[in-house]
């Protein structure tokens, strides 16, 4: 059995090994961009069903962002929405036979988590200035600075491992069951995998939003709830 932690290179471009996950990412990117372009070609004041569906999607995202952060959703919409859509499509691409989702590979999830890490810095500096962003480490008091710095790394590492573990375990379990029991047996597991993929995409996006919002708020106004998990609960309850 192949290790789920490794990936074989299909070919090399210079020093860069192009794995199946990277190719799959390109495919997903192409599908998403072309699909979005086709879907948004004719937006008008009198919406078709297609446009209503798109607007419902965007409106739901805006509502979620507003409920999570209390801020205007416009600056975060592109980043959070794209994260959610990409992770969702990537997770669900496991339904296609022979396709291993890119999020089941370490590099993709690490890249997404790293993007979240840097976006926290970016949005924090953009929203509260460099001083405000640095001050957000001293919340709720300066004693917490080392812990906050450590937390800013570990929380994205946690996101990385969470996403990777969930998707990879789903694919891995399905592979094992398929190899042991036969063709149709893993179908319930695949259904569960759909749910897991949706929930993980949602969690990833919401956590990214919460981290960004917490940093911006702390930098701008002072202490907010630094714990992402309680923030999430508070939002949802």
């Amino acid at each position: 059995m192949n290790s789920p932690l490794e990936s074989a290179a299909l070919f090399y471009i210079g020093p860069v090994a192009i794995t199946q996950a990277i190719v799959m990412t390109w495919v997903i990117m192409a599908v998403l961009v072309i699909g979005a372009y086709l879907l948004t070609r004719r937006l008008s004041l009198h919406p078709s069903k297609r446009q209503v569906a798109l607007e419902l999607l965007v409106d739901t995202l805006d509502t979620q962002i507003r409920e999570t952060t209390g801020a205007a959703p416009a600056p975060y919409r592109g980043f959070i929405g794209t994260l959610f859509v990409f992770i969702l499509v990537a997770n669900w691409s496991s339904l296609i036979p022979g396709v291993e989702p890119p999020t089941a590979k370490l590099e993709t999830d690490a890249a997404l988590a790293a993007l979240v890490f840097f976006s926290v810095i970016w949005f924090g500096v953009r929203g509260a200035g460099v001083g405000g962003y640095l001050r957000s480490f001293a919340m709720p008091n300066p004693v917490m600075i080392p812990l906050n710095m450590l937390e800013s790394v570990t929380r994205v590492f946690s996101m990385f491992v969470r996403l990777f573990g969930n998707v990879m375990s789903g694919v891995f379990v399905i592979g094992i069951v398929a190899s042991l029991a036969g063709l149709l047996v893993p179908i319930p597991l695949m259904a569960l995998d759909l749910l897991t993929g949706l929930v993980q995409a949602y969690i990833f996006a919401v956590l990214a939003m919460v981290f960004i919002a917490a940093t911006v708020e702390e930098g701008a106004h002072g202490p907010a709830d630094p714990d992402p998990e309680t923030s999430l609960q508070k939002k949802d309850s």
Partner: peptide
């Protein structure tokens, strides 16, 4: 909220 929380808890098993 329950689903999100369950996913969070499940993460430890993951």
């Amino acid at each position: 909220t329950l689903f999100v929380g369950l996913a969070m808890i499940e993460t430890t098993a993951i």
